[in-house]
Write a protein that binds this DNA or RNA. Structure first.
Lengths: 206, 206
DNA sequence: CATTTTTCTGATTATGTAATCAAATTTTAC
DNA sequence: GTAAAATTTGATTACATAATCAGAAAAATG
């Protein structure tokens, strides 16, 4: 009909251009990732990018959306292979860190966009209130809430605990300096720390 | 003598230019922070920036160094007003988050540089191995190690625990979406979580 | 197979950039 | 107070960028 009149080549090219954008961002960073650099990597002319995307901002935003969708799908699929909140949390942490380790290019591109792109009013993307938009944060909060209800997690503020977990996950990619550790070990350690922090006390001595 | 032959006006101007650079980075971000934008904010000509700094890269790097020094001084001073590792850790967390809350411009500028600037070989700054260079990470590890030695902290990997703490601190600035919380509350919550995660068990039932 | 529509390119445009330089101005030295 | 050194500027340079456009090439249509 009309909803998907433009598909076939359109979609293929858009995918190709987005893929080249991801590669370019990882290679040379947001600042140098010009349309000509992206076009070079896609082996097309720069004008073709302009044909398929309204402008550079549009390309970057569609690229970001693709990266968010891809990582969220990867992580949430692995998360929900089990039912108990404690296992889901462990899976969530492991999958989040594993995604970084196995998709370095996508991860680098995501970082570049989030920390560089701004709205027309110069508001950085990372400061934008994504009111419940972030599917990963939402899933994480759901898991924590369920665990709390079931009496498995002892947590006062689910929101803060979620931030601590997100922070620990996000920190993994910044490793590489004074000490190095593989993704699996790091995941296990973090999971242990979080579990301990939420452990339900059996005896009260106050 | 000769070591500090060029001071006075030199240093004053450099400070002024660095201050204007911080303001510009916070206002419009790294990408748009051109020499002319910085010059405009400092009410000087662009050529004067080139007179005092070798090139744009040099300016950015000196700006980054100033920002790192300032935040480290702020945080470490507050950290070491006490002696016990547990109190030092609480102070460290509180000061780190308080710095973000009270120095939003400096914090934004720091982020912009770290996530945008790259070496000549296109290696992003945030991926650079700062082998023991980061004074905050070093201090944090020292505190954790001392607490471990004194039997106050039950922690298997000091490095991972340090990363979790750094992550929780760094996550504070990304708050503003689905829920908001003031710096003090967030600090308290995080400190409680970390303390719980490191609590020494009094009874073993395994 | 002819024609219409879509896809794509090379060249061009207008704009912004970092950096340089000769000359003007201010400060310092004597 | 004057000469020398430092600081500062406006104008210019060479270059990269995003975006546009007319027309070529390819694909779809009848």
């Amino acid at each position: 009909m009309e909803t998907n009149k433009n598909t076939f080549i359109q979609e293929a090219r858009k995918h190709q251009i987005i893929e080249a954008t991801i590669r370019t961002l990882g290679d040379i960073g947001y600042v140098k990732a010009s349309l000509s650099q992206i076009a070079k990597r896609a082996s097309i002319s720069t004008a073709l990018i302009s044909y398929h995307f309204a402008d550079r901002q549009d390309l970057i935003e569609q690229c970001l959306q693709a990266l968010i969708d891809q990582s969220a799908t990867y992580i949430l699929t692995k998360t929900y292979t089990v039912d108990e909140p404690a296992s889901q949390l462990a899976n969530f942490i492991e999958a989040s860190i594993a995604y970084q380790a196995t998709h370095p290019k996508e991860n680098a591109a995501l970082l570049e966009i989030v920390f560089n792109a701004r709205t027309v009013n110069d508001v950085p993307f990372y400061k934008l209130p994504d009111d419940g938009e972030d599917p990963l944060l939402k899933a994480l909060c759901n898991i924590l809430n369920k665990g709390k209800e079931q009496g498995e997690f002892n947590v006062t503020s689910v929101n803060v605990m979620a931030k601590v977990i997100q922070g620990a996950i996000g920190e993994y990619m910044l490793i590489g300096g004074p000490f190095s550790i593989d993704a699996e070990q790091y995941s296990e350690e973090v999971t242990k720390i979080i579990w301990t922090a939420m452990k339900v006390e059996e005896t009260n001595n106050a």
